[in-house]
């Protein structure tokens, strides 16, 4: 019997397969991008000026001890309640700001024993040296979340009409600012500043005690 030559494999579609794979990987691979919580540290203050007296009711103390237990206003609470506690404190609006205005956008209880005005409300956080970084970040995250929640609420009250489709108006505004970083949009920047001023982030961190 005559031997037949092996038929040549048609390789014409190889390129298509290759491109298919290439596109698949292009779509599914995410380039890792770092994300995190952005915070500003206070500058070192060498002046001998007496710090202004802050009334106890305008101070929200958060303390994490060495066993990673969370103490808020001297009471131990689970971390799941921290966000709401912080929101209640910031949003209380029981009195007036330094300029004598009442907080007309606050929706809190207006209790006498909690903060006067978001301008005056200060969250003070303290941790032990032995606290784990993970717990520390959890607490930071919840406190930042409280501010973000309130800012979102105000942004959606004031500027919802410009972002009718956005679920989170403040996030949408920040994203837009990020996109137009080469062409400054004064109106947008003003709006973001307005929101930030309504709930200024006053989050102070005390240094852990040295042993």
């Amino acid at each position: 019997m005559a031997k037949r030559a092996a038929p040549e494999v048609n390789a014409g579609s190889m390129a298509d397969i290759a491109f298919l794979l290439l596109i698949f990987f292009l779509v599914t691979t995410t380039i890792e991008k770092d994300k995190g919580l952005l915070r500003s540290l206070p500058p070192i203050d060498d002046t001998e000026v007496e710090p202004p007296v802050i009334r106890q009711k305008n101070l929200f103390t958060v303390n994490i001890n060495r066993n990673n237990q969370l103490l808020v206003e001297e009471e131990e609470i689970p971390i799941s309640q921290l966000r709401q506690a912080a929101i209640d404190f910031l949003d209380n609006g029981g009195g007036t700001n330094p300029a004598g205005q009442r907080c007309d956008y606050c929706k809190g209880n207006r209790s006498e024993d909690s903060s006067d005005h978001p301008d005056k409300a200060i969250i003070s956080m303290k941790h032990d040296r032995e606290t784990t970084y993970e717990k520390y970040m959890d607490v930071q995250n919840e406190l930042v979340a409280a501010y973000n929640f309130l800012r979102e609420r105000e942004a959606s009250r004031l500027y919802k009409q410009y972002y009718p489709n956005a679920d989170k108006v403040f996030t949408a505004m920040l994203e837009e600012k990020d996109k137009n970083q080469f062409s400054k949009d004064e109106v947008l920047n003003d709006r973001i500043e307005t929101i930030k001023k309504l709930f200024p982030m006053k989050l102070s961190e005390a240094e852990p005690d040295k042993k």
Binding site: G36, I64, D128, R129, E130, T132, Y133, E207, P208
Partner: peptide, 15 residues
Amino acid sequence: IGLKVDKNTNAGLVS
């Protein structure tokens, strides 16, 4: 400054 700190580290190092 990007702080990439292991989550099991003491917060004292970070401060």
